[in-house]
Amino acid sequence: MDTSGAVIDRTDQSGLDDVLVLKDLVLRFRGQENDVVDGVSLTVRKGEVLCVVGESGCGKSVTAMALMGLLPKESARISSGNLTIGVDHFDLSKDALPNEMRGNTVAMIFQEPMTSLNPAFRIGDQIGEAVLRHRGGTRAEALARAEEMLTRVGIANPSQRLHEYPHQLSGGMRQRVMIAMALANDPSILIADEPTTALDVTIQAQILDLIRDLRDETGMGTIMITHDLGVVAEIADSVAVMYGGQVVEQGPVAEVFNNPQHPYTIGLMSAMPRLDQPGGRLAIVPGTVPTIANMPEGCRFRSRCAFATPTCASRPALADIADGHAVACHYAPLEDHVAVSA
Protein backbone atom coordinates (compact mmCIF):
# COMPACT_ATOMS: atom_id res chain seq x y z
CA MET A 1 0.00 0.00 0.00
CA ASP A 2 1.34 3.38 -0.87
CA THR A 3 1.08 6.17 1.59
CA SER A 4 2.46 9.64 1.54
CA GLY A 5 2.02 10.87 5.07
CA ALA A 6 1.76 9.82 8.67
CA VAL A 7 -2.00 10.17 8.54
CA ILE A 8 -3.70 8.24 5.80
CA ASP A 9 -7.15 8.62 4.40
CA ARG A 10 -9.68 6.01 5.14
CA THR A 11 -11.06 5.07 1.78
CA ASP A 12 -13.22 2.07 2.52
CA GLN A 13 -16.22 2.53 4.75
CA SER A 14 -17.00 -1.17 4.79
CA GLY A 15 -16.38 -1.85 8.44
CA LEU A 16 -17.83 0.81 10.68
CA ASP A 17 -17.63 -1.70 13.49
CA ASP A 18 -13.93 -2.24 12.97
CA VAL A 19 -12.06 -1.06 16.03
CA LEU A 20 -8.66 -2.01 14.70
CA VAL A 21 -7.47 -2.58 11.18
CA LEU A 22 -3.89 -3.46 10.42
CA LYS A 23 -2.83 -3.52 6.81
CA ASP A 24 0.24 -5.10 5.33
CA LEU A 25 2.66 -5.03 8.25
CA VAL A 26 6.22 -5.78 7.16
CA LEU A 27 8.91 -5.87 9.80
CA ARG A 28 12.54 -6.86 9.90
CA PHE A 29 15.04 -7.05 12.72
CA ARG A 30 18.34 -5.30 12.34
CA GLY A 31 21.01 -7.52 10.86
CA GLN A 32 18.61 -10.04 9.40
CA GLU A 33 18.21 -10.82 5.75
CA ASN A 34 14.54 -11.61 5.84
CA ASP A 35 11.31 -10.10 7.11
CA VAL A 36 10.08 -11.53 10.42
CA VAL A 37 6.59 -10.31 9.73
CA ASP A 38 5.77 -10.45 6.07
CA GLY A 39 2.63 -8.63 5.02
CA VAL A 40 0.24 -9.31 7.89
CA SER A 41 -3.22 -7.76 7.79
CA LEU A 42 -5.71 -8.13 10.64
CA THR A 43 -9.14 -6.74 11.38
CA VAL A 44 -10.86 -6.67 14.77
CA ARG A 45 -14.49 -5.73 15.13
CA LYS A 46 -16.21 -4.30 18.17
CA GLY A 47 -16.88 -6.97 20.75
CA GLU A 48 -14.96 -9.58 18.79
CA VAL A 49 -12.12 -11.84 19.88
CA LEU A 50 -9.58 -12.42 17.14
CA CYS A 51 -7.10 -15.17 17.91
CA VAL A 52 -3.73 -15.17 16.22
CA VAL A 53 -2.44 -18.71 16.44
CA GLY A 54 0.87 -20.22 15.47
CA GLU A 55 3.99 -21.85 16.84
CA SER A 56 7.07 -20.22 18.35
CA GLY A 57 8.78 -17.94 15.90
CA CYS A 58 5.80 -17.44 13.60
CA GLY A 59 5.78 -13.71 14.30
CA LYS A 60 2.57 -13.55 16.29
CA SER A 61 4.02 -11.79 19.34
CA VAL A 62 6.18 -9.49 17.24
CA THR A 63 3.06 -8.42 15.35
CA ALA A 64 1.36 -7.57 18.65
CA MET A 65 4.41 -5.68 19.92
CA ALA A 66 4.61 -3.74 16.67
CA LEU A 67 0.92 -2.81 17.00
CA MET A 68 1.58 -1.46 20.47
CA GLY A 69 4.73 0.31 19.36
CA LEU A 70 6.76 -1.61 21.91
CA LEU A 71 9.60 -2.62 19.61
CA PRO A 72 12.75 -0.52 19.94
CA LYS A 73 13.25 1.58 16.81
CA GLU A 74 16.94 0.81 16.55
CA SER A 75 16.48 -2.95 16.34
CA ALA A 76 13.18 -3.40 14.51
CA ARG A 77 12.54 -1.75 11.18
CA ILE A 78 8.96 -1.53 10.01
CA SER A 79 8.97 -0.98 6.27
CA SER A 80 5.24 -0.98 5.80
CA GLY A 81 2.11 -1.11 7.90
CA ASN A 82 -1.02 0.96 8.26
CA LEU A 83 -2.90 0.90 11.50
CA THR A 84 -6.40 2.24 11.92
CA ILE A 85 -7.80 2.47 15.42
CA GLY A 86 -11.30 3.89 15.47
CA VAL A 87 -10.92 7.08 13.47
CA ASP A 88 -7.18 7.48 13.92
CA HIS A 89 -4.74 6.36 11.28
CA PHE A 90 -1.08 5.63 11.72
CA ASP A 91 1.64 4.75 9.31
CA LEU A 92 3.69 2.41 11.45
CA SER A 93 6.72 2.72 9.19
CA LYS A 94 6.97 6.37 10.22
CA ASP A 95 5.63 6.67 13.71
CA ALA A 96 4.46 4.38 16.46
CA LEU A 97 1.29 4.52 18.48
CA PRO A 98 1.37 7.74 20.54
CA ASN A 99 1.85 7.38 24.28
CA GLU A 100 -1.60 8.83 25.00
CA MET A 101 -3.20 5.85 23.31
CA ARG A 102 -0.93 3.13 24.56
CA GLY A 103 -2.41 1.78 27.78
CA ASN A 104 -5.47 3.91 27.22
CA THR A 105 -7.25 3.12 23.97
CA VAL A 106 -5.14 0.04 23.36
CA ALA A 107 -4.07 -2.07 26.32
CA MET A 108 -1.94 -5.17 26.49
CA ILE A 109 -1.53 -8.09 28.85
CA PHE A 110 1.34 -10.53 28.80
CA GLN A 111 2.04 -14.18 29.32
CA GLU A 112 3.95 -14.03 32.55
CA PRO A 113 2.18 -11.81 35.05
CA MET A 114 4.99 -12.10 37.59
CA THR A 115 7.54 -10.48 35.34
CA SER A 116 5.16 -7.82 34.05
CA LEU A 117 4.20 -6.57 37.50
CA ASN A 118 6.71 -4.52 39.44
CA PRO A 119 7.60 -6.53 42.56
CA ALA A 120 8.47 -3.40 44.53
CA PHE A 121 5.12 -1.66 44.31
CA ARG A 122 1.73 -2.45 45.79
CA ILE A 123 -1.02 -3.69 43.48
CA GLY A 124 -3.16 -0.61 44.09
CA ASP A 125 -0.38 1.80 43.19
CA GLN A 126 0.41 -0.08 40.00
CA ILE A 127 -3.18 -0.03 38.77
CA GLY A 128 -3.55 3.54 40.01
CA GLU A 129 -0.51 4.64 38.04
CA ALA A 130 -2.17 3.66 34.77
CA VAL A 131 -5.25 5.67 35.77
CA LEU A 132 -3.29 8.74 36.90
CA ARG A 133 -1.14 8.69 33.79
CA HIS A 134 -4.05 8.85 31.39
CA ARG A 135 -6.93 10.36 33.33
CA GLY A 136 -5.29 12.54 35.91
CA GLY A 137 -7.14 13.18 39.16
CA THR A 138 -6.01 12.52 42.68
CA ARG A 139 -4.30 9.48 44.10
CA ALA A 140 -7.39 8.68 46.15
CA GLU A 141 -9.54 8.66 43.01
CA ALA A 142 -7.03 6.43 41.25
CA LEU A 143 -7.05 4.00 44.17
CA ALA A 144 -10.84 3.96 44.18
CA ARG A 145 -10.77 3.13 40.48
CA ALA A 146 -8.21 0.40 41.18
CA GLU A 147 -10.44 -1.12 43.82
CA GLU A 148 -13.41 -1.01 41.47
CA MET A 149 -11.36 -2.78 38.79
CA LEU A 150 -10.20 -5.49 41.20
CA THR A 151 -13.82 -6.17 42.09
CA ARG A 152 -14.67 -6.37 38.42
CA VAL A 153 -12.04 -8.97 37.67
CA GLY A 154 -13.29 -11.13 40.50
CA ILE A 155 -10.69 -10.61 43.22
CA ALA A 156 -12.07 -11.19 46.69
CA ASN A 157 -11.25 -8.59 49.35
CA PRO A 158 -10.19 -5.89 46.89
CA SER A 159 -9.63 -3.22 49.52
CA GLN A 160 -7.10 -5.42 51.27
CA ARG A 161 -5.47 -6.66 48.04
CA LEU A 162 -4.78 -3.07 46.98
CA HIS A 163 -2.11 -2.92 49.66
CA GLU A 164 -0.44 -6.21 48.82
CA TYR A 165 2.60 -6.87 46.68
CA PRO A 166 2.64 -9.11 43.57
CA HIS A 167 4.51 -11.93 45.34
CA GLN A 168 1.61 -12.31 47.75
CA LEU A 169 -0.73 -13.31 44.93
CA SER A 170 -1.06 -16.58 43.04
CA GLY A 171 -0.48 -16.81 39.29
CA GLY A 172 -4.17 -16.66 38.44
CA MET A 173 -4.70 -13.63 40.68
CA ARG A 174 -1.70 -11.85 39.17
CA GLN A 175 -3.19 -12.33 35.74
CA ARG A 176 -6.46 -10.90 37.05
CA VAL A 177 -4.54 -7.89 38.37
CA MET A 178 -2.89 -7.46 34.95
CA ILE A 179 -6.31 -7.53 33.33
CA ALA A 180 -7.64 -5.03 35.89
CA MET A 181 -4.72 -2.73 35.09
CA ALA A 182 -5.20 -3.09 31.34
CA LEU A 183 -8.90 -2.37 31.51
CA ALA A 184 -8.72 0.47 34.04
CA ASN A 185 -8.97 3.08 31.31
CA ASP A 186 -11.75 1.34 29.35
CA PRO A 187 -9.67 0.55 26.27
CA SER A 188 -11.45 -0.19 23.02
CA ILE A 189 -8.84 -2.83 22.19
CA LEU A 190 -7.19 -5.40 24.42
CA ILE A 191 -4.16 -7.25 23.12
CA ALA A 192 -3.53 -10.40 25.12
CA ASP A 193 -0.27 -12.23 24.45
CA GLU A 194 -0.63 -15.85 25.64
CA PRO A 195 -2.51 -14.71 28.76
CA THR A 196 -3.23 -18.21 30.03
CA THR A 197 -0.18 -20.16 28.92
CA ALA A 198 1.54 -19.97 32.30
CA LEU A 199 -1.61 -20.96 34.18
CA ASP A 200 -3.07 -24.28 35.21
CA VAL A 201 -5.99 -25.60 33.24
CA THR A 202 -8.68 -24.90 35.86
CA ILE A 203 -7.35 -21.35 36.36
CA GLN A 204 -7.05 -20.92 32.59
CA ALA A 205 -10.75 -21.72 32.28
CA GLN A 206 -11.52 -19.04 34.88
CA ILE A 207 -9.43 -16.40 33.11
CA LEU A 208 -10.96 -17.21 29.71
CA ASP A 209 -14.40 -16.87 31.29
CA LEU A 210 -13.37 -13.52 32.73
CA ILE A 211 -12.09 -12.18 29.39
CA ARG A 212 -15.28 -13.36 27.70
CA ASP A 213 -17.48 -11.69 30.34
CA LEU A 214 -15.54 -8.42 30.20
CA ARG A 215 -15.75 -8.47 26.43
CA ASP A 216 -19.53 -8.81 26.63
CA GLU A 217 -19.70 -6.05 29.23
CA THR A 218 -17.49 -3.48 27.53
CA GLY A 219 -17.71 -4.38 23.86
CA MET A 220 -13.94 -4.12 23.53
CA GLY A 221 -12.23 -5.77 20.61
CA THR A 222 -9.66 -8.35 21.64
CA ILE A 223 -6.61 -9.73 19.88
CA MET A 224 -5.49 -12.87 21.62
CA ILE A 225 -2.14 -14.39 20.73
CA THR A 226 -1.94 -18.09 21.49
CA HIS A 227 -0.37 -21.34 20.40
CA ASP A 228 -3.22 -23.45 21.76
CA LEU A 229 -5.91 -24.41 19.26
CA GLY A 230 -8.12 -25.42 22.19
CA VAL A 231 -8.04 -21.88 23.55
CA VAL A 232 -8.87 -20.57 20.09
CA ALA A 233 -11.90 -22.82 19.81
CA GLU A 234 -12.93 -21.78 23.28
CA ILE A 235 -12.88 -18.02 22.98
CA ALA A 236 -12.33 -16.79 19.44
CA ASP A 237 -14.87 -15.39 17.03
CA SER A 238 -12.34 -15.33 14.25
CA VAL A 239 -8.87 -16.74 13.86
CA ALA A 240 -5.73 -15.99 11.89
CA VAL A 241 -3.23 -18.85 11.52
CA MET A 242 0.34 -17.64 11.15
CA TYR A 243 3.41 -19.41 9.87
CA GLY A 244 6.82 -17.87 9.27
CA GLY A 245 5.58 -14.31 9.58
CA GLN A 246 2.70 -14.74 7.17
CA VAL A 247 -1.00 -15.29 7.71
CA VAL A 248 -1.72 -18.57 5.93
CA GLU A 249 -5.38 -18.88 6.74
CA GLN A 250 -8.00 -16.75 8.41
CA GLY A 251 -11.72 -16.62 8.93
CA PRO A 252 -14.56 -17.23 11.37
CA VAL A 253 -13.42 -19.81 13.91
CA ALA A 254 -16.12 -22.41 13.18
CA GLU A 255 -15.44 -22.18 9.48
CA VAL A 256 -11.67 -22.54 9.86
CA PHE A 257 -11.89 -25.47 12.28
CA ASN A 258 -14.63 -27.36 10.49
CA ASN A 259 -13.26 -26.71 7.06
CA PRO A 260 -9.52 -26.06 7.34
CA GLN A 261 -7.81 -25.50 4.00
CA HIS A 262 -4.13 -24.75 4.46
CA PRO A 263 -1.87 -27.79 4.88
CA TYR A 264 -0.32 -26.13 7.93
CA THR A 265 -3.68 -25.65 9.63
CA ILE A 266 -4.57 -29.25 8.85
CA GLY A 267 -1.18 -30.38 10.16
CA LEU A 268 -1.52 -28.44 13.39
CA MET A 269 -4.98 -29.82 13.99
CA SER A 270 -3.86 -33.38 13.25
CA ALA A 271 -0.83 -33.07 15.51
CA MET A 272 -2.85 -32.15 18.55
CA PRO A 273 -3.50 -35.10 20.85
CA ARG A 274 -7.27 -35.31 21.07
CA LEU A 275 -9.41 -36.42 23.97
CA ASP A 276 -11.88 -38.03 21.63
CA GLN A 277 -9.37 -39.86 19.43
CA PRO A 278 -6.93 -41.67 21.70
CA GLY A 279 -4.07 -43.95 20.83
CA GLY A 280 -2.29 -44.63 17.59
CA ARG A 281 0.22 -42.36 15.95
CA LEU A 282 -0.36 -38.68 15.65
CA ALA A 283 -0.05 -37.14 12.23
CA ILE A 284 2.87 -34.75 12.29
CA VAL A 285 4.14 -31.66 10.61
CA PRO A 286 7.52 -32.93 9.39
CA GLY A 287 10.71 -31.11 10.26
CA THR A 288 11.01 -27.89 12.19
CA VAL A 289 10.41 -24.22 11.51
CA PRO A 290 13.38 -22.83 9.52
CA THR A 291 15.19 -19.85 10.95
CA ILE A 292 14.20 -16.49 9.53
CA ALA A 293 17.35 -16.39 7.41
CA ASN A 294 16.54 -19.78 5.90
CA MET A 295 12.86 -19.15 5.17
CA PRO A 296 12.09 -20.32 1.64
CA GLU A 297 10.92 -17.86 -0.98
CA GLY A 298 7.25 -17.83 -1.89
CA CYS A 299 5.09 -19.93 0.38
CA ARG A 300 7.17 -20.12 3.54
CA PHE A 301 5.59 -23.41 4.59
CA ARG A 302 6.74 -25.23 1.46
CA SER A 303 9.90 -26.66 3.04
CA ARG A 304 7.68 -28.67 5.41
CA CYS A 305 4.68 -29.22 3.17
CA ALA A 306 4.01 -32.69 1.76
CA PHE A 307 2.14 -31.21 -1.19
CA ALA A 308 4.65 -28.55 -2.24
CA THR A 309 5.68 -28.21 -5.91
CA PRO A 310 7.90 -25.72 -7.74
CA THR A 311 4.76 -23.60 -8.15
CA CYS A 312 4.97 -22.87 -4.43
CA ALA A 313 8.12 -20.80 -4.99
CA SER A 314 5.75 -18.01 -5.93
CA ARG A 315 3.86 -16.65 -2.98
CA PRO A 316 0.19 -17.63 -2.97
CA ALA A 317 -2.24 -14.79 -2.33
CA LEU A 318 -4.47 -14.89 0.72
CA ALA A 319 -7.68 -15.40 -1.24
CA ASP A 320 -11.26 -15.89 -0.12
CA ILE A 321 -12.68 -19.36 -0.60
CA ALA A 322 -15.88 -18.69 1.29
CA ASP A 323 -17.44 -15.75 3.05
CA GLY A 324 -14.64 -14.26 5.12
CA HIS A 325 -12.61 -17.47 5.02
CA ALA A 326 -9.32 -16.90 3.24
CA VAL A 327 -6.39 -19.20 2.60
CA ALA A 328 -2.96 -18.72 1.08
CA CYS A 329 -2.32 -21.96 -0.79
CA HIS A 330 -1.99 -22.71 -4.50
CA TYR A 331 -3.64 -26.06 -3.99
CA ALA A 332 -6.73 -25.25 -1.95
CA PRO A 333 -8.99 -27.10 -1.69
CA LEU A 334 -6.53 -29.97 -1.49
CA GLU A 335 -8.91 -32.74 -2.46
CA ASP A 336 -9.49 -31.09 -5.85
CA HIS A 337 -5.81 -30.72 -6.60
CA VAL A 338 -3.91 -33.67 -5.24
CA ALA A 339 -4.21 -37.40 -4.83
CA VAL A 340 -2.12 -39.59 -2.54
CA SER A 341 -1.31 -43.21 -3.17
CA ALA A 342 0.39 -45.43 -0.64
Binding site: P260, S270, P286, H330, D336, V338, V340
Partner: peptide
Amino acid sequence: AAEARFALYRAATEGGTVTHKTQQTTERT
Protein backbone atom coordinates in the same frame (compact mmCIF):
# COMPACT_ATOMS: atom_id res chain seq x y z
CA ALA B 1 -14.43 -32.52 2.12
CA ALA B 2 -12.54 -31.59 5.27
CA GLU B 3 -12.35 -35.23 6.32
CA ALA B 4 -10.96 -36.09 2.91
CA ARG B 5 -8.37 -33.34 3.37
CA PHE B 6 -7.27 -34.72 6.74
CA ALA B 7 -6.97 -38.19 5.26
CA LEU B 8 -4.88 -36.82 2.38
CA TYR B 9 -2.63 -34.99 4.82
CA ARG B 10 -2.05 -38.04 6.99
CA ALA B 11 -1.37 -40.26 4.00
CA ALA B 12 1.06 -37.74 2.53
CA THR B 13 3.02 -37.21 5.75
CA GLU B 14 3.22 -40.93 6.36
CA GLY B 15 5.09 -41.57 3.15
CA GLY B 16 2.40 -41.71 0.50
CA THR B 17 3.17 -40.53 -3.02
CA VAL B 18 1.58 -37.22 -3.85
CA THR B 19 0.39 -36.62 -7.39
CA HIS B 20 -0.97 -33.32 -8.54
CA LYS B 21 -4.07 -33.55 -10.68
CA THR B 22 -3.33 -30.24 -12.35
CA GLN B 23 0.34 -29.95 -13.13
CA GLN B 24 0.16 -26.33 -14.08
CA THR B 25 -2.04 -24.92 -11.40
CA THR B 26 -3.58 -21.62 -12.19
CA GLU B 27 -3.72 -18.96 -9.56
CA ARG B 28 -7.08 -19.00 -7.84
CA THR B 29 -9.08 -15.87 -8.20
